[in-house]
Design a protein around this nucleic acid. Structure first.
Lengths: 75, 75
DNA sequence: AAAATATGTAATGTATAATTTACATAAGTA
DNA sequence: TACTTATGTAAATTATACATTACATATTTT
């Protein structure tokens, strides 16, 4: 299932590059790229670290309403 | 890093057993047990499914303030 | 034009989330 | 007493999050 989130939006607002954000939360740039594109399903601990860096909450960055879930069949 | 959350609290409020909640979100009872105990670091998709079942948001169940993080050295 | 920065992505490897099977205990119930 | 229900946990396996290395393109800067 695809995983939209608002990481890219808030990262740019914070004037951070993928590399900087990735480094700050302890993952690689590639991992951050895939998370932004919704192609990885990050763990809650990593989501929390991203929240702390971007000064946002889980709901602000990662909440998806139940009706909006993208299942594999709809890609 | 240990992963406290309020899954157990809200599960009991919802009068669900571990088995029922696990089955409803598509994991095993054992996995749900470990998540409740903070010994697994679930993915955001699984967290969202748990939220939908318990009618709560990510912040209500999984938010942890940055200062409250338990690192492995403090266990 | 050349060099540096920012991002995308593919292939392979490693760490760990989650499964499966199984056994254990406590508490309620027939 | 036996039987069922709810939970904890351990060992072995599988699936997948994430790392590593590498190469690509577009944009900016010198």
């Amino acid at each position: 299932m695809k995983n939209h989130n608002k990481v890219k939006i808030f990262r740019i607002e914070s004037e951070l590059t993928q590399k900087e954000l990735a480094s700050n939360v302890g993952v690689t740039r590639q991992t951050m790229s895939l998370i932004e594109k919704g192609e990885y399903n990050p763990t809650i601990n990593l989501c929390l670290k991203i929240c702390y860096q971007l000064n946002k909450t889980l709901d602000e960055i990662f909440w998806i309403d139940e009706g909006e879930i993208q299942h594999e069949t709809s890609k």
